[in-house]
Design a protein around this nucleic acid. Structure first.
Length: 399
RNA sequence: GGGCAGAUACCCAAGCGGUCAACGGGGACAGACUGUAAAUCUGUUGGCUCCGGCCUUCGAAGGUUCGAAUCCUUCUCUGCCCA
């Protein structure tokens, strides 16, 4: 049995760094952690996509620290839940995945998570699947679970309210999701859970069930979400959420494309920078210092964290060359061609443009370069050896 | 079960017999500018084209009409109200 540490600094970090809320309260959880008893904490992943992303890793950071302190950490794969479809944060119903899809997605998670969590040793992170208990429940069990909540409680959720207001459908099975997630806590008999702020409702359902079924006060720590504080752009644009399978240059680039307002939250959520350091950055930018410098620093740290130092350096260099100096990148995608073909066809064949019409438009608007020269005639022909560029950052070489 | 509304491009959302490939917003792409792929401004955003046009789209299938996203019928799905 690993020894449990009560390191004040670490506990402080756990409860404050990038934390949105702590239930029942920071003070109580702090007291609990200071007792030095070994606790069980978990984080649930909804296996709807094939890869983990930055959002998961933000939670892993907190888990890793729990692990470091000697607590038992469970990584739960919501393989059962994913077949139902989680309504969280979606205006519409998410379509359920098939079992096969879910299992395929799960496959790589462990490897990806191993980047920051320890799956070996005496205090290894335990991987669990909620189909283990949820798959065994019968209708009577489900009814019993459901009896612990009221429809009004379910409807409290923001997004249900929104949908009601907008006249959008709310399906009955969507009420089941918090129940299932809540029951996970009971089945694993955990002491606490961490998760994104957007999961608060589901996690609190677990608290309710835990109290009623096991008379246990499960704690919940919710993370800040990585969004622009002005709320302007990020809410829905998870499009530039960084996936673990992204190339390091892409990760770097995605951070650079975050709005300036995300720099400070980014440091708080994704780096080990001390609070003082972050404060300094904040004031410096307020005084008018170029945010780009800090964003580049952040981008590099994020890549280093997710992939490695070396890759981070390379990604930074790549960015300087391609985006700031506008140099042609060293490695550009290649397209095999017979000999000569029309520029339009080449653009479509390489995937740079989605259709011939699109290609023509791009050319006519001056968005296409061949061997560094803007080409405005859509009837231009190209042949082997030419480098075609669309916009600032899309290249293809004909070979 | 009854009544009433609705289904439009990637998303939201106008249009309600011809001038509709379909207003506007978001997103995306491009251009200018810059501090970067930020912000701002501008343009583009169904497909094909011998650049004359041609073809396919407005929940589905039929119908009326010289002509339909627009009118009619049936069907599917959704919301609201009543029971």
């Amino acid at each position: 049995m690993p020894k449990v540490s009560t390191d004040a600094k670490k506990i402080d970090w756990l409860l404050n760094r990038a934390v949105e809320n702590v239930y029942p309260s920071k003070a109580e959880v702090k007291k609990l952690l200071q007792k030095g008893e070994r606790l069980t904490v978990y984080f649930g992943i909804d296996p709807t996509g094939p890869t983990l992303h930055l959002g998961h890793f933000i939670n892993f950071r907190r888990l890793a620290l729990f692990q470091e302190l000697g607590h038992k950490v469970i990584l739960l794969i919501g393989d059962f839940t994913a077949t139902i479809g989680d309504p969280t944060d979606k205006a519409a119903v998410r379509k359920p995945l098939t079992r096969e899809e879910v299992l395929a997605n799960c496959k790589l998670y462990k490897d990806q998570a191993a980047q920051v969590l320890d799956f070996k040793g005496s205090n290894a992170v335990e991987l669990k699947f909620n189909s283990e208990w949820l798959g065994k429940m019968n209708f009577a069990d489900v009814l019993d679970l459901a009896s612990h909540f009221t429809v009004q409680q379910m409807l409290e959720r923001d997004m249900f309210q929104t949908r009601l207001k907008d006249g959008k459908p709310i399906h009955v099975h969507e009420f089941m999701y918090p129940l299932m997630q809540g029951y996970d806590s009971v089945a694993m008999d955990v002491d606490g859970e961490v998760g994104g702020n957007d999961q608060t409702f589901n996690m609190l359902a677990g608290r309710t069930l835990m109290k009623q079924l096991k008379n246990k006060d499960k704690f919940v720590i919710t993370n800040e979400l990585l969004v622009d504080p002005t709320g302007k752009k990020m809410g829905k644009s998870e499009g530039n959420m960084i996936a673990l399978t992204d190339a390091p240059e892409d990760m770097y680039g995605k951070v650079m494309s975050w709005t300036d307002g995300m720099i400070v939250p980014g440091f708080r959520l994704c780096t080990d920078a001390s609070d003082e350091e972050i404060k300094k950055i904040e004031t410096a930018m307020k005084k008018g210092e170029n945010p780009m410098t800090y964003k580049r620093d952040l981008a590099k740290r994020v890549v280093a964290w997710l992939v490695g130092e070396k890759e981070a350096d390379q990604a930074a260099e790549h960015f300087t060359n391609v985006h700031q100096k506008h140099a042609t990148p060293d490695e550009i995608p290649e397209l095999k061609v017979k000999d000569r073909m029309s520029l339009v066809d080449a653009l479509v064949a390489s995937g740079l443009c989605s259709s011939k019409s699109d290609a023509r438009r791009q050319i006519e608007q001056g968005g296409v370069k061949v061997d560094d020269e803007v080409v405005k005639d859509p009837n231009t022909n190209v042949r082997k050896g030419f480098v075609i560029q669309k916009g600032k950052r899309h290249f293809v070489k004909l070979v």
